[in-house]
Amino acid sequence: MEEQIVELAAKLAVVESKANVTNSMFAEAFYYVTIPLMILIHAGFLAYEMGASRTKMC
């Protein structure tokens, strides 16, 4: 009985550790992906501004 509890406690520790890794990997990937999406805003601003400017060729 005791050995089962010790074994289960060890397994639980492994599962908890894996869950923590999953959570931190998720959080990191989540914010990482926001960055290229936000850079797209800049692609948009660039196109927007160039389109709104006049071409003046002398």
Partner: peptide, 22 residues
């Protein structure tokens, strides 16, 4: 007037895409 309305409007749509990241 700007010289390229299609570019401007497409740029605005891209900004909408980027907003989701924001």
């Amino acid at each position: 007037a700007g010289h390229n309305m299609p570019l401007t409007v497409t740029g605005l749509m891209l900004i909408i895409v980027g907003f989701w990241g924001f």
